[in-house]
Design a protein around this nucleic acid. Structure first.
Length: 903
RNA sequence: GCCCGGAUGGUGAAAUCGGUAAACACAGCGGACUUAAAAUCCGCCGCCGCAAGGUUUACGGGUUCAAGUCCCGUUCCGGGCACCA
């Protein structure tokens, strides 16, 4: 990567003087009595840089661990969500490194995208410059957090070295028929004459012009992810390391449904013949209700609708109206359902009755055949539609003897647990039997069959935008759409354009636009559409694992590192990014590039970091956001926000709790936290605040506590160096020694906490790992320290604490490990395991319940039998009191926990 | 609207397989040290009650010797809904 800010880290030939000292001295050395995070962190980071501690290569002598965090979009500054994400990844990476794994943790930049164009419009800066400047700044921020990243593998998706392979694989997909050109529906701003992203459509209007947005059909390239729908669904079962909820969301998104596709026949046609050869196809999962059809509805773009509109101005106007409004599913689902009859009729395939065809604004051309049968009695949406337009409703399914009423929709109307009624020969059949019988009957008439239908749609990757990967196609008047030959890749994006919001600036770049046709040599026009940025992020994990500069998309080293052992990123990516990556991987496999079929073995979906956002709703629609520094906030006694006003004019603002985002002016920059307290405090606090998968409402209350804790760790280190360690003799005597009870109890406590911490690390619950380290320090500070044996126990226990702490707070752990003489480099230390000998206990405490209520506790020998425990419990003072002279009916003994006397 | 999550003290949270609700912290209150402040250390800290005790995990039911945890229903909050990334 040749660009500024993206050069690979070069091995330092000569380290700073004190670094050499750090590496060679393993005996204790004088230490600062004050905790000075800035100095400690600078020294630790220089040590890691100079020793290239995190640069890794394939090594078959060790198990590998590829730990990947979702790469950031270079929006300008890191925010707390990034700190959370990358700290989680770093904790796992460092933990596994100490466990003996060969750990790869790379980092890069998801560098194409809309915000760079927005910044360009606002500041007149080319997106490239803005992006590379942001990368440089954010890279330095990441470095200051001390992440164990192999920076030699850094990549940015906006560099030709990277996106060349997007283009290359796209051409392979074209060859295989996985990519194809067809039409797509986009948001069109009629004033700016440009395509808008969903985000740029606010309340149905263009974000800059305020003009009513139109739907427009334009050509674009699609990747046939639906060809992989079956495999994407079934392979979910193999992803044992994925959260169930994510797999469920993906399965629902893919949306496999089995039903019947059949045709209503008709005689509607014009001079070109019958429309659709006289068949209007529909798909239904409720074929059992086919005898209850009272109307049909088609999408506004359906050929029958368009045909009817030719002679029906009212209908034409309605179809025109349907063209406005949103293309978003959420809007489609919540909008008022409207329709208009076409005056056309189709024939019911089984009854032969004439059924009227309506145009419905809720019917999607993109799902199935763009037409549906209407069974108002048993479909909630059809019911509402029929009531609104006074269409007949005919019950054809009964559940038990429940009475059907037209007054209001009831839950059971949509049930599949009933049987057919009013359905002629199908009466009495269950859902499954009726579907089978009806499918057989339409099949016999050759007008339908059982069919699997997917909710998943093909992936449209064409974007009418500048700052993205050029689609490698040349349009020739004679030859059509011609793929760019491989030897002319990459098609490089000019980096000096400044978009102004009025369409793709590439249209004005004649040096880019004008190109000779690769087939006939005539002057032709280069495709100006660029790829969806989800393409960039669909395979970056494989590129990290490829040797830098390889003139292949992926190389042999990829086989060593892939698949990713642990992937970490926000839950907001649970569907799209992860599904596209899975799809892309399967295509790469089918092209013969890789041998694995799934990219991510384990997935940790981090909860969002939320913050309040404050905004005005201006008249033209949309939201104007303000920074918290610009407003006054009113809170109630419990601290809940009750209102907010703008400082400059006192106007009232609305507020919402939402994800941190540059566009909402509610992102919190970690920089001040790092400068004030240091990276270790920021990291520790972030991990301590909540378990990683939980949504986190940002607050810095508690940062002081994390800082105080690290100061205490340092102070104890100092005390250990000056007062405790000197008591230790030349030979150690801890192993095999019988410890006095107080010392044994202390040591047991530390080893129990270690056991707990290891368990929690396995669960990836880092907040309780952090609290375990705090408990350890609390115990260590109170422990006996006035003997050689006590000093040895403390040496062991503090060593455990430093190692458990090191993934969370690597800098202070590095400094203390070195300066207290534990070893040269804590990264090379083995992860601690609890010792059985330290855990043994003679007596245990059981809780005592009477009728399920806690009444006391009793101490029993650790090896006491159930009978002995029961006898002791019944005789216990508190038990006798609360049993009030009644005889026990039952005594429940839960080993190691409690006794419950029921009387 | 549909799909997926979540809700526990003043606050962030803990509770591993249904078995001591509130660990560990933050904030607060009281005290020690200090000329003072900061820092540090000690103590208290769900609610009601003088106490004994009672009571408490969004709300309403249920299962169980035992429910924050399992089941049914409801409310509110967050994520996603295919062109934000």
């Amino acid at each position: 990567m040749s660009h500024q800010g993206l050069e690979r880290v070069k091995p330092a030939t000569t380290g700073p003087v004190y670094n050499a000292r750090f590496r060679t001295i393993c005996t204790p050395q004088p230490m600062q009595d004050k905790y000075l995070p800035a100095d400690i962190e600078r020294a630790a980071q220089q040590h890691w840089d100079s020793t290239e501690a995190f640069r890794v290569a394939a090594d078959t002598t060790k198990p590998k661990y590829y730990c990947l965090s979702m790469f950031p979009y270079p929006s300008g500054k890191l925010h707390m969500g990034h700190v959370r994400n990358y700290t989680i990844g770093d904790v796992l990476s460092r933990f596994h490194k100490m466990k003996g794994f060969n750990v790869l943790q790379p980092m890069g930049w998801d560098a194409f995208g809309l915000p760079a164009e927005n910044a360009a419009i606002k500041n007149q800066v080319p997106p490239a410059k803005w992006t590379y400047d942001n990368i440089a700044y954010m890279k330095q921020q990441l470095k200051s957090l001390g992440f164990a990243i192999d920076w030699s593998r850094e990549l940015a998706t906006c560099t030709p070295e990277y996106y060349k392979w997007n283009q290359w694989l796209f051409l392979r997909m074209l060859e295989k028929g996985v990519a194809e050109r067809k039409t797509q529906v986009v948001n069109w701003d009629p004033v700016d004459q440009t395509v808008l992203a969903n985000e740029q459509v606010i309340d149905g209007r263009g974000w800059r012009t305020g003009a009513l947005v139109e739907k427009r059909e334009i050509p674009g390239y699609y990747l046939k992810i639906t060809d992989y729908a079956d495999e994407l669904l079934s392979d979910l079962d193999e992803l044992e390391g994925w959260p169930e909820r994510v797999k469920l969301m993906q399965a629902n998104w893919i949306g496999k449904s089995t039903g019947v596709r059949f045709a209503f026949s008709h005689t509607v046609g014009d001079e070109n013949g019958l429309i659709g050869d006289g068949k209007m196809w529909v798909f239904t999962t409720r074929a059992d209700t086919i005898m209850g059809v009272t109307f049909c509805a088609v999408a506004a773009e359906h050929p029958l609708a368009l045909h009817a509109a030719k002679s029906n101005p009212e209908l034409a106007a309605f179809i025109e109206k349907c063209k406005h409004g949103s293309v978003m599913e959420a809007d489609m689902a919540t909008m008022e359902k409207e329709g208009l009859p076409t005056g056309l009729f189709v024939t019911h395939p089984l009854t032969g009755e004439q059924v009227e065809v309506w145009v419905g604004n809720y019917v999607l051309m993109s799902y199935g055949d763009g037409a549906v049968m209407g069974v108002p009695a048993h479909d909630e949406r059809d019911f509402a539609f029929a009531k609104k337009y006074k269409l007949p409703i005919e019950q054809v399914v009964a559940v038990g003897d429940k009475a059907y009423s037209l007054d209001a929709w009831q839950e059971w109307y949509g049930s599949k647990d009933g049987h057919c009624v009013n359905s002629g020969k199908y009466d009495g059949l269950s859902y499954a039997d009726a579907v089978d019988a009806i499918a057989a009957d339409v099949a016999a008439k050759n007008i339908g069959e059982k069919k699997v239908q997917w909710r998943l749609r093909d992936w449209g990757i064409s974007r009418q935008r500048y700052w993205g990967c050029p689609i490698p196609i040349i349009h020739c008047d004679d030859c059509g759409s011609v793929p760019v030959p491989d030897d002319q890749l990459p098609v490089k994006l000019p980096e000096d354009c400044v978009p102004d919001g009025s369409g793709n600036p590439l249209h004005k770049r004649l040096d880019f636009l004008h190109v000779d046709c690769p087939k006939c040599g005539k002057q032709a026009r280069r495709e100006t559409d660029t790829m969806d940025t989800f393409v960039d992020s669909s395979w970056y994990y494989a590129r990290y694992a490829t040797r830098f500069g390889a003139d292949k998309m992926v190389d042999e080293e990829t086989d060593y590192w892939m698949t990713v052992d642990q992937y970490i990123g926000g839950i907001e990516h649970a569907i799209l990014h992860l599904l596209y990556s899975r799809f892309w991987t399967k295509v790469m496999r089918d092209v013969g590039l890789v041998s694995y079929r799934e990219p991510f073995a384990h997935l940790l979906t981090q909860g969002m970091v939320l913050n309040n956002a404050f905004f005005h709703k201006p008249e033209g629609g949309g939201k104007n956001y303000f920074w918290e520094s610009e407003i006054d906030i009113q809170k109630d006694a419990k601290g809940h926000i009750t209102g907010a006003t703008l400082k400059k004019d006192g106007s009232t603002l609305e507020h919402e709790l939402t994800t941190m985002s540059k566009s909402k002016n509610n992102g919190v920059d970690p920089q001040s936290l790092i400068e004030q307290y240091g990276a270790d405090t920021a990291r520790f606090f972030m991990m301590f605040a909540a378990p990683p998968e939980q949504t986190l409402e940002w607050s810095d209350a508690g940062v002081e506590g994390a800082y105080r804790f690290l100061r205490r760790v340092w102070s104890f280190g100092h005390l250990f160096a000056t007062e405790i360690r000197p008591q230790i003799g030349a030979t150690r005597s801890l192993a095999g020694a019988k410890l006095p009870e107080e010392l044994a109890a202390f040591r047991r406590e530390i080893h129990l906490l270690l056991k707990q911490a290891n368990y929690d690390l396995g669960k990836q619950q880092f907040n309780t790992v952090a609290s375990a380290t705090m408990k350890m320090l609390n115990a260590i500070e109170k422990a006996p320290r006035q003997s050689a044996l006590a000093a040895e126990v403390l040496e062991e226990c503090f060593g455990i604490l430093l190692r458990v702490l090191s993934p969370l707070t690597p800098h202070i752990s590095h400094a203390l490990w070195l300066q207290l003489g534990y070893g040269n480099d804590i990264l090379a230390a083995a992860w601690p395991e609890p010792l059985d000998a330290a855990l043994v206990q003679d007596e245990i405490e059981l809780m005592l319940q009477v009728n399920g209520k806690l009444r006391g506790s009793l101490r029993v020998p650790a090896d006491a039998t159930k009978d002995a425990i029961e006898a002791a419990a019944v005789a216990h003072e508190a038990a006798v009191k609360f049993m009030e002279g009644k005889a026990p009916k039952k005594v429940v003994v839960v080993p190691g926990r409690l006794v419950n006397i029921v009387c």
